[in-house]
């Protein structure tokens, strides 16, 4: 049993988004966090102090631990933001405002160019 079977979900066709440059399957209606969890990804932020990985913690938009960059827009709460086809999702470094050149050039920078 998986959650989709449990709830008898019959979502529309899946679509592709990218996470740090690699394609990830997404279901319509899911949040960015749900899509990443389903793909086995549990962290998408690196803290601005110690550079530690973070992902979902509270899951309801209160803790801001799941901040992520989506389509070049930093500090989006992955647990709240629904995915749309073609979304470019990138691991967020620090403040998300691209300070120290530590961006690895995958999600974030591509997204900026795509804007």
């Amino acid at each position: 049993m998986n959650p989709l079977e449990l709830a008898g979900a019959r979502p529309g066709p899946s679509f592709t988004v990218t996470f740090d440059g690699r394609p990830v399957e997404a279901l319509p209606g899911q949040t960015v966090a749900a899509v990443l969890w389903a793909a086995g990804v549990t962290s998408w932020r690196s803290t601005r102090g110690e550079g530690r990985p973070r992902g979902v913690f509270c899951g309801i938009g209160v803790c801001f631990d799941c901040l992520v960059t989506v389509n070049g827009r930093p500090n989006q709460r992955a647990c709240l933001v629904p995915v749309r086809p073609g979304d470019v999702i990138g691991t967020q470094d620090g403040t998300g405002h691209g300070e120290t050149g530590t961006q690895d050039g995958t999600g974030h920078e591509e997204a900026r160019h795509a804007d």
């Binding site: 959650p3 966090a33 549990t42 962290s43 990985p53 973070r54 979902v56 913690f57 647990c79």
Partner: peptide
């Protein structure tokens, strides 16, 4: 408790109820 994979109990439930996903 800051490691990815540690979530709040309610967070795990919210992700399950709303997104039909589980963390592991």
């Amino acid at each position: 408790w800051t490691l990815p994979g540690v979530v709040t109990a309610g967070g795990a439930q919210a992700m399950l109820k709303g997104g039909l996903v589980v963390p592991g």
